[in-house]
């Protein structure tokens, strides 16, 4: 327990020293970089994953392809992919963003698809019976009922993007991972653990945002206990 308190006080010292709060090596700048990488990748991935997932889920065509892609994607070592992209394309932000996006699409795609597929067929029939068009069935019946799974997919993707953006500091990208990677290179444990603490805080905020989102947007009738990672 002593070690843990030491670690906490190290984090405290590091966080409160003023040099952490200014300049390109400061926390605000690194956090902004991190949020930019993660936010942009997640946005692109959501556009691709949601539209494809809704399409495949609603029409039922291409289900096998979606399941295979999702399975294969989980096996891709994110670290290897990011390092490979930097080795092949040189150190710039755009290729890494493409890699982050590619990694974030599958969880969004598969969960959106599963969510839409899993909608009670009776509810779908009822919607159709009320005279809804295909679009109305999708947007007014299927999507609201699939929301818990869609949000789960977005949350898993967000967690993965934030984690991979941290690792992307190793081949030289900015973001919060810089503190950890630079600290390791300089044998500066205070920097490593301070940087880790900021990363952990960001992860907790992401988790909290999705929990709150779930409370707000999911219909009360559907709120079962959350499952899945």
């Amino acid at each position: 327990m002593n070690g843990f308190l030491n670690q906490l006080s190290l984090v405290g010292d590091w966080l409160t020293s003023s040099q952490q709060w200014h300049g390109p090596d400061g926390i605000p700048h690194r956090l902004l970089e991190h949020l930019t990488y993660s936010g942009l990748s997640l946005l692109f991935a959501a556009l691709i994953g949601l539209s494809l997932g809704l399409l495949v889920g609603h029409t039922g065509r291409g289900a096998f392809a979606v399941a295979s892609v999702a399975n294969l994607a989980r096996a891709v070592p994110t670290f290897g992919l990011v390092v490979l992209v930097v080795t092949l394309a040189g150190l710039s932000t755009a290729p890494v963003l493409v890699a982050l996006t590619a990694l974030a699409v599958p969880p969004i795609l598969i969960n959106t698809f599963e969510g839409i597929r899993g909608v009670d067929p009776d509810a779908r029939d009822a919607a159709r019976g009320m005279g809804m068009t295909g679009w109305e069935v999708l947007l007014k019946a299927e999507v609201p009922m699939a929301l818990p799974l869609i949000l789960l997919g977005l949350r898993v993707a967000a967690i993965q993007v934030v984690a991979t953006a941290t690792v992307a500091a190793y081949p030289g990208l900015g973001g919060l991972g810089r503190f950890i990677v630079d600290g390791l290179a300089r044998n500066d444990y205070e920097l490593v653990i301070g940087g880790s603490a900021v990363v952990v805080l960001l992860a907790l905020v992401v988790q909290a945002v999705f929990t709150a989102l779930r409370r707000v947007v999911v219909s009360p009738g559907l709120r079962a206990p959350a499952s899945g990672p």
Binding site: A163, T166, G177, S196, V199, V200, A203
Partner: peptide, 8 residues
């Protein structure tokens, strides 16, 4: 699960 592996 949400904590990035590198930090953990």
């Amino acid at each position: 699960y949400s904590i990035p592996s590198l930090a953990l």
